[in-house]
Amino acid sequence: MRYLVFVKQVPDTTLIEVDEQGNLRREGVPSILDPYSEHALELALNLRSEGDSVTVVTMGPPQATAALRRCLEIGADEAYLLSDRAFAGADTYATSRTLTAFVEKFGECPDLILFGKQAADGDTAQVPAEVAEMLGADQFYYVTKAEPSGEGFEVVQDYGDEVRTCRAPKGSVLSVSEGDINRRLPSIERYLQASAMEIKVLDRIALGLGNFSVGNKGSRTKIVRSGSVRSERSCTVVDGSDPAKAATLIRGLF
């Protein structure tokens, strides 16, 4: 089986702070492999058996190789970086077209395509469904489990109010929910191996995409305004050392 995992590099949002004016302080905040991507990769690595392969792909600037390197360290077999100045400013639609082009040109009919359920920075959760639609593939969101079954896979999805088990044909797109995992750590041996592995870089031309299909120009949405808003709440701090008084205070709100 061939497993294709789309991953993303994001700033470590747990370290981002907000200053008095409401601006994001990104100084000294490292970029990491998106934790949600990691869950998707984890699922793929667990599915992989003898003779299978796991390929990781990301779209991003050259620095995003660091995220791919991390994937190789924890077990991916092969990594591609889709990188081109023209890809900048892509919304989910343009991103999905770029990723779809990769699957069509280089994917060699993957048996399963996996995404994290969202990205820690963008948080739209739209790309998996858009890619699935563009590929004409079936989509499975909120996947908590997947295992090979017959010709395809059996997947478990958790919609919050419903847990369903479906048969997923080969070639399906999965959006993977967080599982309860401890992040893998590579051995020193694997770390050294991975640092010697090649990360293949593909640009717009290699993917056969026109200028108008990618990045800002290929996007279907535009940001017209973006700004920090100071939260209107002015927090009053109250002494709660007496639980009974504090409880009365809370009860007074109802």
């Binding site: 939260s231 709440r233 927090c235 701090v237 109250v238 002494d239 709660g240 050392s241 504090a246 809370i250």
Partner: peptide
């Protein structure tokens, strides 16, 4: 983001 913070 809180309107009120009760320290206790």
């Amino acid at each position: 983001v809180a309107d009120q913070l009760i320290v206790g």
